[in-house]
Amino acid sequence: MTEPSVLHATDDDVLTITLNRPESLNAVTPDQRDEIVRLLSEASTTAEVRAVVITGTGRGFCAGADLRGAATSGTRIAGDVARTLRLGAQRLIAAVLDCEKPVIAAVNGTAAGLGAHLAFACDLVLAAHSARFIEVFVRRGLVPDGGGAYLLPRLVGPQRAKELMFFGDALSATDAERMGLVNRVVPDDDLDKTARAWAERLATGPTRALALTKQLVNASLDADRATAFAAEAAAQEINMTTADAREGVRAFVERRSAEFEGR
Protein backbone atom coordinates (compact mmCIF):
# COMPACT_ATOMS: atom_id res chain seq x y z
CA MET A 1 0.00 0.00 0.00
CA THR A 2 1.10 3.56 -0.71
CA GLU A 3 1.86 5.63 2.38
CA PRO A 4 -0.22 8.78 2.97
CA SER A 5 1.33 12.02 1.75
CA VAL A 6 0.94 13.44 5.25
CA LEU A 7 1.81 11.23 8.20
CA HIS A 8 0.60 12.09 11.69
CA ALA A 9 0.86 10.51 15.09
CA THR A 10 0.22 11.62 18.67
CA ASP A 11 2.45 10.33 21.43
CA ASP A 12 2.86 11.71 24.97
CA ASP A 13 0.66 14.70 24.07
CA VAL A 14 2.86 15.60 21.06
CA LEU A 15 1.35 15.59 17.57
CA THR A 16 3.95 15.03 14.85
CA ILE A 17 2.94 16.03 11.32
CA THR A 18 5.28 14.73 8.62
CA LEU A 19 5.16 15.76 4.98
CA ASN A 20 5.73 12.53 3.10
CA ARG A 21 6.48 13.08 -0.57
CA PRO A 22 10.27 12.76 -0.48
CA GLU A 23 10.53 12.25 -4.23
CA SER A 24 9.37 15.87 -4.71
CA LEU A 25 11.21 17.28 -1.66
CA ASN A 26 7.76 17.44 -0.04
CA ALA A 27 6.38 20.10 -2.36
CA VAL A 28 2.88 20.67 -1.01
CA THR A 29 -0.17 19.60 -2.99
CA PRO A 30 -3.65 21.02 -2.30
CA ASP A 31 -4.65 17.75 -0.61
CA GLN A 32 -1.61 17.85 1.66
CA ARG A 33 -2.27 21.48 2.50
CA ASP A 34 -5.87 20.77 3.43
CA GLU A 35 -4.82 17.83 5.61
CA ILE A 36 -2.26 19.91 7.51
CA VAL A 37 -4.83 22.67 8.05
CA ARG A 38 -7.29 20.07 9.37
CA LEU A 39 -4.74 18.54 11.73
CA LEU A 40 -3.70 21.93 13.15
CA SER A 41 -7.32 22.96 13.63
CA GLU A 42 -8.09 19.73 15.46
CA ALA A 43 -4.96 20.12 17.58
CA SER A 44 -6.36 23.36 19.00
CA THR A 45 -9.43 21.58 20.37
CA THR A 46 -7.87 18.24 21.33
CA ALA A 47 -6.87 17.97 24.97
CA GLU A 48 -4.52 15.08 24.20
CA VAL A 49 -2.42 17.35 21.98
CA ARG A 50 -0.30 19.89 23.86
CA ALA A 51 2.48 20.52 21.33
CA VAL A 52 2.97 20.02 17.59
CA VAL A 53 6.03 19.20 15.48
CA ILE A 54 6.06 19.70 11.70
CA THR A 55 8.80 17.99 9.69
CA GLY A 56 9.45 16.19 6.41
CA THR A 57 10.80 12.91 5.11
CA GLY A 58 13.89 12.56 2.97
CA ARG A 59 16.15 15.44 1.93
CA GLY A 60 13.53 18.15 1.94
CA PHE A 61 11.44 19.85 4.57
CA CYS A 62 9.18 21.40 1.95
CA ALA A 63 10.12 22.67 -1.51
CA GLY A 64 7.09 24.97 -1.63
CA ALA A 65 3.83 24.55 -3.45
CA ASP A 66 3.69 21.78 -6.05
CA LEU A 67 3.22 23.75 -9.27
CA ARG A 68 3.10 20.72 -11.53
CA GLY A 69 -0.22 20.75 -13.29
CA ALA A 70 -0.90 24.37 -12.35
CA ALA A 71 -2.51 26.36 -15.14
CA THR A 72 -0.16 28.84 -16.78
CA SER A 73 -2.39 29.78 -19.70
CA GLY A 74 -6.02 29.83 -20.70
CA THR A 75 -8.91 31.95 -19.56
CA ARG A 76 -8.58 33.38 -16.08
CA ILE A 77 -11.41 35.16 -14.31
CA ALA A 78 -10.52 38.31 -12.38
CA GLY A 79 -9.91 37.39 -8.75
CA ASP A 80 -8.92 33.78 -9.44
CA VAL A 81 -5.31 34.17 -8.31
CA ALA A 82 -6.16 36.14 -5.17
CA ARG A 83 -8.88 33.63 -4.28
CA THR A 84 -6.52 30.71 -4.79
CA LEU A 85 -3.95 32.29 -2.48
CA ARG A 86 -6.49 33.11 0.24
CA LEU A 87 -7.88 29.59 0.25
CA GLY A 88 -4.51 27.91 -0.28
CA ALA A 89 -1.09 29.15 0.84
CA GLN A 90 -2.42 31.88 3.12
CA ARG A 91 -4.83 29.48 4.82
CA LEU A 92 -1.98 27.08 5.53
CA ILE A 93 0.20 29.75 7.12
CA ALA A 94 -2.74 31.13 9.11
CA ALA A 95 -3.44 27.64 10.44
CA VAL A 96 0.06 27.51 11.93
CA LEU A 97 -0.14 31.03 13.37
CA ASP A 98 -3.63 30.43 14.78
CA CYS A 99 -3.02 26.97 16.23
CA GLU A 100 -3.61 27.16 19.98
CA LYS A 101 -0.79 24.77 20.74
CA PRO A 102 2.93 25.59 20.33
CA VAL A 103 4.22 24.47 16.93
CA ILE A 104 7.85 23.50 16.29
CA ALA A 105 9.33 23.27 12.80
CA ALA A 106 11.98 20.55 12.56
CA VAL A 107 13.58 21.55 9.26
CA ASN A 108 15.36 18.47 7.97
CA GLY A 109 16.38 19.77 4.54
CA THR A 110 15.48 22.32 1.89
CA ALA A 111 12.72 24.77 2.83
CA ALA A 112 11.89 26.84 -0.23
CA GLY A 113 9.15 29.31 -1.04
CA LEU A 114 5.98 28.34 0.79
CA GLY A 115 8.02 25.68 2.58
CA ALA A 116 10.27 28.34 4.09
CA HIS A 117 7.24 30.36 5.14
CA LEU A 118 5.68 27.26 6.70
CA ALA A 119 8.78 26.97 8.89
CA PHE A 120 8.94 30.69 9.70
CA ALA A 121 5.28 30.71 10.78
CA CYS A 122 6.03 28.13 13.48
CA ASP A 123 6.62 29.26 17.05
CA LEU A 124 10.06 27.66 17.25
CA VAL A 125 12.35 26.59 14.41
CA LEU A 126 14.96 23.86 14.71
CA ALA A 127 17.14 23.23 11.67
CA ALA A 128 19.43 20.38 10.74
CA HIS A 129 22.90 21.57 9.77
CA SER A 130 22.22 20.56 6.16
CA ALA A 131 18.96 22.53 5.96
CA ARG A 132 18.72 25.60 3.78
CA PHE A 133 16.10 28.26 3.20
CA ILE A 134 15.32 29.81 -0.18
CA GLU A 135 12.98 32.67 -1.09
CA VAL A 136 12.61 31.07 -4.50
CA PHE A 137 9.80 33.25 -5.89
CA VAL A 138 12.03 35.77 -7.68
CA ARG A 139 13.66 32.92 -9.62
CA ARG A 140 10.25 32.16 -11.13
CA GLY A 141 9.23 35.76 -11.70
CA LEU A 142 6.70 35.60 -8.89
CA VAL A 143 5.74 37.77 -5.93
CA PRO A 144 6.29 36.04 -2.57
CA ASP A 145 3.13 34.46 -1.22
CA GLY A 146 2.16 32.38 1.78
CA GLY A 147 2.60 35.37 4.07
CA GLY A 148 6.28 35.86 3.28
CA ALA A 149 6.15 39.64 3.05
CA TYR A 150 4.32 39.64 6.39
CA LEU A 151 6.53 37.16 8.24
CA LEU A 152 10.05 38.05 7.11
CA PRO A 153 10.14 41.78 7.96
CA ARG A 154 8.86 40.93 11.43
CA LEU A 155 11.58 38.34 11.91
CA VAL A 156 14.63 40.03 10.36
CA GLY A 157 13.58 43.60 9.45
CA PRO A 158 12.70 45.08 6.05
CA GLN A 159 16.20 45.37 4.61
CA ARG A 160 17.14 41.78 5.32
CA ALA A 161 13.72 40.62 4.10
CA LYS A 162 14.22 42.46 0.80
CA GLU A 163 17.70 41.03 0.39
CA LEU A 164 16.36 37.49 0.77
CA MET A 165 13.38 38.09 -1.51
CA PHE A 166 15.11 40.18 -4.18
CA PHE A 167 18.01 37.78 -4.75
CA GLY A 168 16.49 34.40 -3.89
CA ASP A 169 19.85 33.03 -2.75
CA ALA A 170 19.99 29.87 -0.66
CA LEU A 171 20.51 30.62 3.02
CA SER A 172 22.36 28.06 5.09
CA ALA A 173 20.98 26.91 8.41
CA THR A 174 23.87 28.61 10.20
CA ASP A 175 23.21 31.93 8.47
CA ALA A 176 19.49 31.60 9.14
CA GLU A 177 20.24 31.14 12.83
CA ARG A 178 22.54 34.17 12.82
CA MET A 179 19.78 36.29 11.25
CA GLY A 180 17.18 35.15 13.78
CA LEU A 181 15.11 32.96 11.47
CA VAL A 182 16.10 29.78 13.30
CA ASN A 183 16.22 29.14 17.04
CA ARG A 184 18.90 26.48 16.90
CA VAL A 185 20.94 24.48 14.39
CA VAL A 186 21.74 20.89 15.33
CA PRO A 187 23.58 18.02 13.65
CA ASP A 188 21.36 16.22 11.16
CA ASP A 189 21.26 13.05 13.27
CA ASP A 190 20.13 15.02 16.34
CA LEU A 191 17.20 16.88 14.75
CA ASP A 192 14.42 14.44 15.58
CA LYS A 193 15.72 13.89 19.11
CA THR A 194 16.02 17.62 19.80
CA ALA A 195 12.60 18.42 18.33
CA ARG A 196 11.09 15.66 20.42
CA ALA A 197 12.76 16.91 23.60
CA TRP A 198 11.55 20.47 22.99
CA ALA A 199 8.02 19.31 22.18
CA GLU A 200 7.81 17.07 25.23
CA ARG A 201 8.94 19.95 27.41
CA LEU A 202 6.23 22.19 25.93
CA ALA A 203 3.68 19.39 26.33
CA THR A 204 4.24 19.37 30.09
CA GLY A 205 3.79 23.14 30.32
CA PRO A 206 0.69 25.24 31.10
CA THR A 207 -1.02 24.70 27.75
CA ARG A 208 -3.55 27.51 27.96
CA ALA A 209 -0.97 30.01 29.17
CA LEU A 210 1.24 29.08 26.22
CA ALA A 211 -1.68 29.58 23.82
CA LEU A 212 -2.43 33.01 25.23
CA THR A 213 1.26 33.94 25.20
CA LYS A 214 1.51 32.93 21.54
CA GLN A 215 -1.55 35.02 20.74
CA LEU A 216 -0.18 38.04 22.59
CA VAL A 217 3.23 37.92 20.91
CA ASN A 218 1.80 37.45 17.41
CA ALA A 219 -0.76 40.24 17.87
CA SER A 220 1.75 42.65 19.41
CA LEU A 221 3.56 43.00 16.10
CA ASP A 222 0.54 44.79 14.66
CA ALA A 223 -0.67 46.64 17.77
CA ASP A 224 0.15 49.90 19.52
CA ARG A 225 1.19 49.87 23.17
CA ALA A 226 -2.27 50.60 24.58
CA THR A 227 -3.84 47.78 22.57
CA ALA A 228 -1.06 45.38 23.50
CA PHE A 229 -1.34 46.22 27.20
CA ALA A 230 -5.12 45.78 27.12
CA ALA A 231 -4.73 42.41 25.42
CA GLU A 232 -2.16 41.37 28.02
CA ALA A 233 -4.50 42.25 30.87
CA ALA A 234 -7.38 40.35 29.24
CA ALA A 235 -5.20 37.30 28.65
CA GLN A 236 -4.04 37.32 32.25
CA GLU A 237 -7.65 37.57 33.43
CA ILE A 238 -8.62 34.57 31.30
CA ASN A 239 -5.59 32.53 32.28
CA MET A 240 -6.13 32.99 36.00
CA THR A 241 -9.29 30.89 35.67
CA THR A 242 -7.30 27.83 34.58
CA ALA A 243 -6.32 24.90 36.76
CA ASP A 244 -2.71 25.23 35.62
CA ALA A 245 -2.50 28.83 36.84
CA ARG A 246 -3.85 27.81 40.24
CA GLU A 247 -1.36 24.93 40.35
CA GLY A 248 1.48 27.26 39.43
CA VAL A 249 0.67 29.63 42.27
CA ARG A 250 0.27 26.76 44.77
CA ALA A 251 3.59 25.27 43.68
CA PHE A 252 5.32 28.62 44.18
CA VAL A 253 3.88 29.02 47.67
CA GLU A 254 4.72 25.41 48.56
CA ARG A 255 8.23 25.73 47.07
CA ARG A 256 7.91 22.78 44.68
CA SER A 257 7.87 22.21 40.95
CA ALA A 258 4.49 22.73 39.31
CA GLU A 259 2.72 19.79 37.64
CA PHE A 260 0.65 21.17 34.79
CA GLU A 261 -2.17 19.16 33.20
CA GLY A 262 -3.05 21.45 30.32
CA ARG A 263 -6.32 22.61 31.87
Rank of each mutant, 00 (worst) to 15 (best):
I238K: 05
V49T: 13
E135H: 00
I54T: 03
A197H: 11
D192Y: 07
L164S: 02
L151M: 02
G168M: 07
W198A: 11
R250K: 12
E100S: 11
L210N: 04
R263I: 15
P158E: 13
A161R: 01
R33G: 09
A65L: 15
G168E: 04
N183A: 15
P4A: 11
R83Q: 13
L67Y: 10
G79R: 06
A251N: 08
G180I: 08
A95I: 00
P102G: 08
V217R: 14
F133I: 09
R38G: 09
R196Y: 13
V81Q: 13
L142N: 09
L15D: 03
L92K: 02
L164I: 10
L142Q: 12
A27D: 08
M1P: 00
L39D: 03
I134E: 06
T16L: 04
A116F: 06
A245W: 14
A9T: 13
T110P: 01
A89R: 02
A170D: 14
A9P: 00
E135R: 13
T207C: 06
I54C: 03
R83P: 00
K214L: 07
M179I: 07
M165A: 08
I17D: 01
A127P: 04
A47G: 14
A121R: 01
L124C: 11
N26S: 11
A119T: 10
L114W: 01
M1R: 01
G60H: 07
A209W: 09
R59M: 08
A233M: 07
M1A: 11
T45P: 03
S41I: 13
L142I: 09
E48N: 13
A70T: 12
S220G: 12
S41R: 15
R250L: 10
A234Y: 06
K214E: 04
D98F: 00
D244E: 12
D98V: 01
E254W: 01
S24D: 14
A27Y: 03
V103C: 07
T55N: 09
T18K: 03
A65R: 04
I93L: 08
T2Y: 09
R50V: 12
T227Y: 06
F61Q: 05
Q159P: 00
H129G: 08
N183V: 05
E135D: 12
A121D: 04
Q236V: 15
L212G: 06
T242E: 05
T241G: 05
A195Y: 06
S44W: 09
L126T: 06
D175Q: 06
L40C: 14
Q90L: 11
E135Q: 03
D34K: 12
V37C: 05
D244L: 03
A233E: 14
T227V: 07
L191H: 01
A170Y: 01
L216Q: 10
N239I: 08
T213F: 12
M165L: 08
P102M: 07
G168F: 02
G115Q: 03
V37A: 05
A203L: 04
F166A: 00
V217W: 11
K162P: 00
R59L: 11
A82I: 06
V253H: 12
T18H: 04
M1Y: 01
G157H: 06
S130L: 05
P158I: 02
L202T: 09
A82G: 09
I54E: 04
L97A: 09
N239T: 12
A170T: 12
L85T: 10
N20R: 03
D66H: 12
I36K: 02
V49H: 03
G205L: 08
S44E: 07
N239P: 03
A251T: 10
A251V: 10
S257L: 14
D34V: 11
F61D: 04
D31V: 15
G168I: 03
